[in-house]
């Protein structure tokens, strides 16, 4: 999934969406579209933001590259290194911990043979512990792509990994529904 070339181009659909995003803000305030444009770039760049991808974002939004870099490095949802096809983001904050999130992390580490922050050699899975995702009542939980997976236990994790390998897991998209078709 990770592009090896230094090139990055937005799809036509993404460019149309970015043009629409710009109209949501007053004249000259199109920098406000940056965060969402970065989400689109990341999605179209195999799940992470390379320098060429960020430079392209700067170009389409008429910004200086540094304005894009400083934002991309601030927010945790932007991955500045390649990630696997499935990025497993497991919440590790207090309420999830109280419900056993550490056991979920340990199980994933053992099952996938990787530690927090690492990617499996086949490029399928990246494990990342994250801070509170607002699902404390449905703990333990993890986010994969667009969706939350809640009330996790070891058996559910095993099933989930099998479903990923079988290509049955939907990770969603940042595209708006009206452009998604």
């Amino acid at each position: 999934m990770t592009p090896t070339s230094n090139e990055f181009r937005f799809s036509e659909a993404a460019l149309a969406e970015i043009a629409d995003l710009r109209t949501r803000f007053p004249e000259g305030k199109h920098k406000s579209a940056l965060l969402r444009t970065l989400h689109l770039a990341q999605e179209e760049n195999g799940g992470w933001l390379s320098v060429p991808a960020m430079d392209r974002v700067a170009e389409v939004l008429d910004l200086k590259p540094i304005e894009v870099y400083e934002v991309a490095t601030f927010y945790t949802m932007y991955n500045l290194k390649p990630v696997g096809k499935y990025l497993l983001e497991v919440c590790r904050t207090g309420p999830c911990y109280a419900c056993g999130s550490h056991r979920i992390v340990a199980h994933l580490e053992e099952k996938l043979g990787i530690h927090d922050g690492e990617t499996t050699p086949d490029g399928m899975f990246t494990l990342k512990t994250v801070e509170c995702l607002g699902a404390c009542g449905y703990a333990p939980m993890m986010q994969v792509g667009e969706f939350f997976h809640e009330f996790l236990d070891e058996a559910k994790i095993d099933q989930f990994i099998a479903d990923c390998r079988a290509g049955k897991i939907d990770v969603g998209t940042w595209r708006q529904s009206r452009f998604a078709q």
């Binding site: 406000s32 969402r36 970065l38 601030f74 927010y75 945790t76 949802m77 932007y78």
Partner: peptide, 10 residues
């Protein structure tokens, strides 16, 4: 009225 998503920052 518009929705603007953030990108992960408490």
């Amino acid at each position: 009225l518009y929705v603007t998503p953030g990108a992960g920052a408490y």
